[in-house]
Nucleic acid binder design. Structure first.
Length: 596
RNA sequence: GGCCCCGUAGCUUAAUGGAUAGAGCAUCUGACUACGGAUCAGAAGGUUGUAGGUUCGACUCUUACCGGGGUCACCA
């Protein structure tokens, strides 16, 4: 049993015995003792002063004496002001280590048939341009959150809704028709998503110059934006698309195909994946049907121009359009359709949308609309909203060319990993493919850790220079510690030293104690990450563990330790630390290298 | 303007209402024939945006203000 819970229960028992009052153990406040005081767990005595009617010091001493006498795990205590510091017996920490040692899945709750199912939607790209830094945060958070939920015993379905239809893709199509000369990814050796993105940019340039011309010819800006030939052409194409025009559909499929191939590559590089992909082109009609059903049932209102609206003023929000006057769908319509299809496909208990915080309002509305349409799960859909990624000089702007492309970024990080690694020359004797594999693991470790260690809610600054720093609180620093432990374990095996199945020791030095304390926290950290929906909790914990281990490693020898019992104990600790690094990093979607 | 989010060391950031606000980078000082130095030990750096309130105790809760961002489309 967890020491915190033991203490809470026993403090409640102490208060019952000493002051004849019953309190709920959950009201007892326990925290880790600060390192400058003696002890492991600290109980706040202030809340009990009303019960004891004595000073903080006396109350703390009385409770402390009771615990020391009655609780085997508590071997001593001291009181500083209103803080009761408890010394936890070494055997307790040793037992926690021995639970972790043989358990490959230490810290994880197993998934069973009875587990609840959670669907996580993330990524959700548009098919008119390649993925950039902002998408990277989305993908990494979505994947990591999925792993965290799995580790908390949920069945997880990772899903992606691809926004594959609409004006944006038509713009790229128009530009390609006009300027493309039949260019394909194959003919020019380009990644499909990048190629389509180039035509999206070309469209924008063309459109802008047309607007400028029209304004020069005497039109107002609004008129020019409406009448520019490119945009007229785009609208026509969208209509043809909706009317299933074979030629347009064909081009659409071809160009989207290019993009998907490019995306698949990027996803593979990032190490993210999906169990089920939905396409907006398949779901928007379902959404429209649902909205029309809502009209029939009087939930939504149709105006005289035949546009459909939801009135959410009673809920404190505004009116929201659901279908345009020409009967076509808007953004939120397809989300309704997608939700319906998903719940038809899977027995979902919880739905999590990983979408940027600029869409908080959108998901409030979606939740209400689904609820009004009679879906019992509408109310408790969870919008995992995360902050934007900014660059040191501000927000990314495609117009100013300050967008950081996902593929370029990863390639750049791999280059740095390669350079650093070659300078250190630790990978001699490895084949080039093996080396490249390790560079890739390290580069992605750096990128992922840099992004995931930050609280998802916060707007984060991405400094490309700092992100490729491999020292300090970084992914590679942690990976390095893992590789070093593996090196020790390898050496142990080579010299015929067996890794013990059970850790034994007569006494713990301070750093060993600290390590065991941190090790015992891991399962709790995983729970908290699940509850808070925050991979950052795991990242910061693993860093703490690694820091403590490195300090220990520097001060004490393991294989060279003359006392064999102590040596074996430390091997067990090292093995467990490596396991936690590996398990913790797996929750972040980060791999650990055996050497680097 | 209404509503929402964020302001912590020069920079990037951490802290279930608890003790002297914890790290990393950068800066400075030490430790290398090293169980892997991509390391470790240490120094310096803070009025937690400002002013009140609640509390034994506030970075945390609350009010007002200041600064930054988002959102209120027949865009997605």
């Amino acid at each position: 049993m967890n020491i915190e819970l033991i203490i809470k229960d026993q403090v409640a028992a102490a208060i019952k015995a000493l002051y004849e009052q019953t309190i709920d153990p959950s009201q007892v406040q326990v925290q880790l003792t600060r390192s400058e005081f003696e002890g492991d767990q600290t109980v706040m005595v202030f809340p009990f002063l009303r019960i004891s009617k004595k000073s903080p010091e006396v109350t703390g001493a009385e409770i402390g004496a009771y615990l020391a006498a009655n609780v085997p795990e508590v071997s001593g205590y001291n009181v500083v002001k209103g803080f009761l510091n408890l010394v936890v017996d070494d055997n307790y920490w040793l037992e926690r280590l021995n639970e972790a040692l043989p358990d490959e899945r230490y810290g994880f709750v197993p998934v069973t048939d009875k587990s609840e199912m959670v669907m996580v939607e993330y990524s959700s790209p548009n098919t008119n341009k390649p993925l950039h830094l902002g998408h990277i945060r989305n993908n990494l958070l979505g994947f990591s959150l999925s792993e965290v939920m799995k580790a908390n015993g949920y069945k997880v379905v990772k899903t992606n809704i691809v926004n594959d239809r609409g004006v944006h893709i038509c713009k790229s199509m128009v530009a390609w028709q006009k300027f493309g000369n039949g260019e394909t990814p194959e003919t020019h050796g380009k990644k499909g998503d990048h190629l389509v993105g180039e035509y999206y940019v070309k469209f924008d340039q063309q459109y802008k110059s047309e607007i400028a011309e029209l304004i020069a010819a005497g039109r107002t800006e609004d008129q020019a934006k409406e009448e520019a030939p490119s945009i007229v052409e785009t609208r026509e194409m969208l209509l043809k698309w909706e009317a299933n025009d074979p030629e347009v559909r064909n081009l659409w499929q071809t160009m989207n195909g290019w993009v998907y191939k490019g995306f698949d590559e990027t996803y593979k590089t990032l190490g993210v994946n999906f169990d089920k992909i939905y396409y907006e082109s398949d779901t928007y009609l379902t959404g429209r049907d649902e909205v029309l059903r809502g009209v029939k049932e009087g939930i939504f209102q149709q105006e005289s121009d035949s546009s459909v609206w939801a009135n959410l003023e009673a809920e404190g929000l505004d009116k929201k359009i659901l279908l345009r006057s020409d009967g076509t769908s808007v953004y939120i319509t397809q989300d309704i359709g997608t939700a319906q299809l998903r719940y038809r496909d899977y027995p979902i208990d919880h739905m999590i949308y990983v979408v940027g915080n600029e869409q908080i309002y959108h998901f409030q509305v979606l939740s209400l609309l689904l609820d009004k349409l009679g879906y019992k799960w509408g109310k408790d859909l969870y919008h995992f909203s995360y902050g934007m990624v900014e660059l040191p000089n501000g927000r990314m702007k495609s117009r100013e060319g300050t967008v950081v492309d996902a593929d370029d970024l990863v390639a750049g990080m791999v280059d740095v990993a390669r350079t650093v690694s070659m300078e250190l020359g630790k990978l001699e004797g490895y084949s080039d493919t093996e080396k490249e594999h390790i560079y890739h693991i390290v580069a992605l470790g750096a990128l992922k850790y840099f992004i995931l260690k930050v609280d998802p809610k916060k707007t984060m600054t991405f400094n490309p220079e700092e992100s490729i720093d491999f020292n300090g609180n970084t992914g590679p620093f942690i990976q390095y510690t893992y590789a070093r432990i593996q090196s020790i374990l390898r050496k142990a095996k080579e010299t015929g030293i067996a890794i013990p199945g059970r850790a034994e020791t007569d006494s713990l030095n301070e750093k060993e104690r600290n390590l065991l304390k941190i090790i015992s926290l891991f399962p709790e950290v995983v729970r908290e990450a699940g509850k808070e929906h925050s991979p950052a909790v795991v990242a910061n914990y693993v860093y703490d563990l690694v820091k403590e281990f490195n300090s220990f490693y520097h001060d004490f020898s393991i294989l060279n330790e003359p006392d064999l019992k102590v040596r074996d104990f430390r091997l067990a600790v090292a093995e467990t630390v490596a396991r936690i690094i590996k398990n913790g990093f797996s929750l972040l979607g980060i791999q650990v290298p055996e050497r680097m």
